[in-house]
């Protein structure tokens, strides 16, 4: 059953989306509710994955600290328009520690920082988008293992726009009519300068802090990694040194 969970969840979401775009479907699905529901369900699904994972105490503590540092960076730079180190730190965490840790650091940073800045309808979307940024960095590393500094800088830059795109989906589905490509592009165009600042900020943070932060995280990753050796059966020795006469 465990291995079918993800395909089943994926099928359910795509099925709901497909059902919602059929013009004469018998049940009129409210897209604002549907999009919020899908994001909520995805967060629950991914958190559940973390619950069932064999995450060690050290991993939990490191995720909490990275989330808190990212939240601190966000809150301390909240006066600047959309220039914040969260995306940078979350991507670097996912790149070093893997998809699960990357997702948890991103969603933790969003939720924790909003307890200080103020929770809003944006919280679940930020948790989802930052979580995905962290998780995708791990997949980026797996696909391009030899990616250099500029490739990762480009990845950081892209996430500035992807993050804005995800945040716009809810604004678009909940408040705009009709839901068409034109209206989505208009919504995205309105936030374009904001997203551009985000993307440039990510690249700036990565170029200034990236090398040293990756070095620090690699060091911690070695410290928290637990490798288990297989139990070996040691054959009984034939030499009886303590043979008594």
């Amino acid at each position: 059953m465990e291995k079918w969970k993800f395909p089943l969840f994926f099928l359910l979401v795509t099925g709901l989306l497909a059902f919602s775009i059929i013009a004469d479907s018998p049940v009129k699905l409210n897209w604002s509710l549907l999009s919020a529901g899908i994001v909520g369900a995805a967060i629950i699904f991914l958190f559940r994955g973390f619950e069932q994972s064999p995450a060690s105490t050290r991993e939990i503590a490191v995720i909490a600290v990275l989330g808190a540092v990212a939240a601190l960076g966000r809150v301390s730079l909240s006066a600047l328009p959309n220039i914040q180190p969260v995306t940078f730190l979350v991507i670097v965490s996912g790149y070093v520690f893997g998809a699960r840790t990357g997702f948890m650091v991103g969603s933790t940073a969003a939720l924790a920082s909003n307890f200080f800045l103020g929770q809003g309808p944006w919280t679940p979307w930020q948790m989802f988008a930052w979580g995905l940024a962290g998780a995708s960095a791990a997949y980026f590393r797996a696909v391009f293992p030899g990616a250099g500094k500029w490739a990762l800088a480009l990845f950081q830059f892209t996430w500035g726009y992807l993050f804005g795109c995800m945040m716009n989906i809810w604004t678009w589905t909940a408040f705009i009519h009709p839901l068409s490509w034109q209206s989505f592009l208009a919504t995205w165009a309105a936030s374009l300068w904001f997203d551009s600042l985000h993307a440039l900020g990510n690249v700036f943070f990565y170029l200034f802090f990236g090398g040293s932060v990756i070095k620090i995280l690699n060091r911690v990753q070695k410290k928290i990694a637990v490798s288990r050796l297989p139990v070996q059966n040691i054959p009984p020795s034939n030499n009886h040194h303590y043979k008594t006469n």
Binding site: F50, I60, A61, A64, G67, A68, T108, F115
Partner: peptide, 20 residues
């Protein structure tokens, strides 16, 4: 029902003033 996740977020929230 979400022991590890709530612990992580609660720890991060508590660590925030400490880090500051």
């Amino acid at each position: 029902f979400a022991r590890k996740s709530s612990l992580v977020v609660s720890l991060a929230t508590r660590l925030f003033p400490l880090l500051l």
